[in-house]
């Protein structure tokens, strides 16, 4: 059976190519039909902030790539409730549907469930 991978994405979408490159690992895994999960943690929750204007900071919008996740067969999407609350990101209006909002204990259990973890 294929090993599962959890990608923990911790960077804001406008802090450099980090968030995009983290997402690329997930999309590539999806393209190969691998069991893969994506957790938005710390500043990574900003990637799901609604109503972003990437152009205003001369950046490319990451949300189109995020919308591609279901098409790549990646449905295990998670968001840290504490990270979102600390940063004022409203979890009832996220830029991506079908994201499970998890508390700290659930996140510990989530990480435990996966064979391998990459944090970026």
């Amino acid at each position: 059976m294929a090993k599962s991978l959890l990608l923990i994405s911790r960077q804001a979408p406008w802090s450099g190519p980090g968030a995009r490159e983290a997402l690329d690992i997930v999309l590539a895994g999806g393209a190969f039909d691998l069991p893969i999960g994506l957790l938005f943690l710390d500043d990574g929750v900003f990637q799901l902030s609604a109503g972003q204007n990437a152009k205003a900071v001369q950046q490319k919008d990451l949300s189109a790539n995020l919308q591609a996740l279901p098409m790549f067969g990646v449905d295990d999407l998670f968001l840290c409730a504490d990270s979102a609350a600390e940063r004022g990101v409203a979890t009832d209006a996220l830029a991506l549907g079908e994201v499970k909002v998890l508390g700290a204990a659930d996140i510990a259990a989530l990480i435990d469930r996966y064979d391998q973890v990459i944090t970026l």
Binding site: A2, K3, L5, R10, Q11, G18, D24, I25, A28, G29, F32, L34, Q116, V117, I118, T119, L120
Partner: peptide, 21 residues
């Protein structure tokens, strides 16, 4: 490409990462 990373993860007992965020 990134397929080489996934391929290595599948082949290895452990993935060890350095320098992530």
């Amino acid at each position: 490409g990134l397929g080489q990373l996934h391929d290595a993860i599948q082949d290895a007992d452990r993935l060890i990462c350095f320098g992530g965020a």
